[in-house]
Simulated assay, not measured.
Amino acid sequence: MHCPNCASKNIGKISTNQFYCWNCCIELTLENDKLLLSQVEEDGTLTSLDDLFDDTQREAKANGF
């Protein structure tokens, strides 16, 4: 399993379909074989990063999820 943002293998599991990259500090959510990427803000809210990646980069199978 690799982070689509930084290619790190340092991924932790938050819940059933949610993961966290400890290298670049983004949250990854697996939904319908696509990854939804979010930046965790200082106040705990999530900001979507999906617009920074195309569909092939967000495909879960291509990233080893």
Rank of each mutant, 00 (worst) to 15 (best):
M1F: 04
M1E: 00
H2N: 14
C3R: 03
C3H: 04
C3I: 02
C3W: 00
C3V: 02
C3D: 00
P4C: 09
P4N: 10
N5Q: 08
C6K: 02
C6S: 09
C6I: 02
A7W: 15
A7M: 12
A7I: 06
S8N: 07
S8P: 03
K9T: 08
K9A: 07
N10A: 13
N10G: 06
N10K: 13
I11H: 04
I11E: 00
G12E: 03
K13L: 06
I14F: 03
I14H: 05
S15E: 09
S15K: 13
S15P: 04
S15G: 12
T16H: 14
T16Y: 04
N17E: 09
F19D: 00
C21V: 04
W22I: 02
C24E: 01
C24M: 07
C25G: 08
C25K: 15
I26E: 00
I26G: 03
L28V: 06
L28R: 05
L28K: 10
L30R: 07
L30M: 06
E31A: 13
E31M: 12
N32E: 14
D33C: 05
K34I: 09
L35A: 04
L35F: 15
L35M: 10
L35Q: 01
L35P: 00
L36I: 09
L37C: 15
S38K: 11
V40E: 04
E42Q: 09
E42L: 13
D43H: 07
D43M: 06
G44T: 05
T45H: 09
T45L: 09
T45V: 09
T45R: 15
L46P: 01
L46W: 01
L46G: 03
T47P: 02
S48A: 10
S48Q: 10
L49E: 08
D50N: 15
D51M: 12
D51T: 11
D51P: 02
L52M: 06
L52T: 07
F53Y: 10
D54K: 11
D54P: 02
D54E: 07
T56F: 11
T56I: 13
T56C: 06
Q57Y: 06
R58C: 03
R58E: 05
E59W: 07
E59V: 02
A60D: 05
A62N: 12
N63R: 08
G64M: 05
G64Y: 07
F65W: 12
